[in-house]
Amino acid sequence: MLSVRNLKRLSIGPVDLDVAAHDIVALCGPSGVGKSLLLRAIADLDPNEGTLSLLGESRESMSAPDWRRQVMYVPAHTGWWADTVEPHFAGLSLALVKDTLHRLGLESTALGWQVSNLSTGERQRLALARALAYAPKVLLLDEPTSGLDADNATRVEKLVGEVAAGGVAVLFVTHDMAQAKRLSTRRLDMTSGQLVEGTP
């Protein structure tokens, strides 16, 4: 599904990797090694070079917004551009959004909440719901459960598993080896800007 060849950016690469539909790939490695930067480069958020394609279509053949809608990066700490939650879901199917919120342990009234009152965990789950509402083909998740309690972490893992079962390719960064083992079908380890296949 997602193919990355010879990806280079400042302090990273060259990196080759493939993530197929239904695949859940864990990206592990010590802090500061460039895992988030790698996800940002795949999403084309920073200047980078390499040959990337989605379902055989090269990244350059589509506009950057088209690429990002399909290869969606969910940062560990996302930003908000309006005062309440709902405007961040403008133009999306609210029925679908509310269903996702329930599965993540959030009430549908969450859409009316003030962003400034949200906890870290609420922000993180709302950001995931926001990304899923665009029905991306590839999900790039940066520490998707870092701010969550055990129950909510389980909800997120379950939802990610279901999304992958539905045909989405998932690449996620984690520092939790148990989570990597539990959730992923494959593990990649990153050291000093390079990737190696992890031993299960």
């Binding site: 999403a43 088209d66 990002r68 990066y73 996302t78 930003g79 551009w81 926001r130 665009y134």
Partner: peptide, 22 residues
């Protein structure tokens, strides 16, 4: 200052023009 908010829109596939308009 608003880097996070702008990039939050960019990752969702919003055009940069829309994200920086305000």
């Amino acid at each position: 200052r608003e880097k996070d908010a702008i990039e939050a829109r960019l990752v969702l596939g919003h055009a940069r023009r829309d994200a920086v308009k305000p």
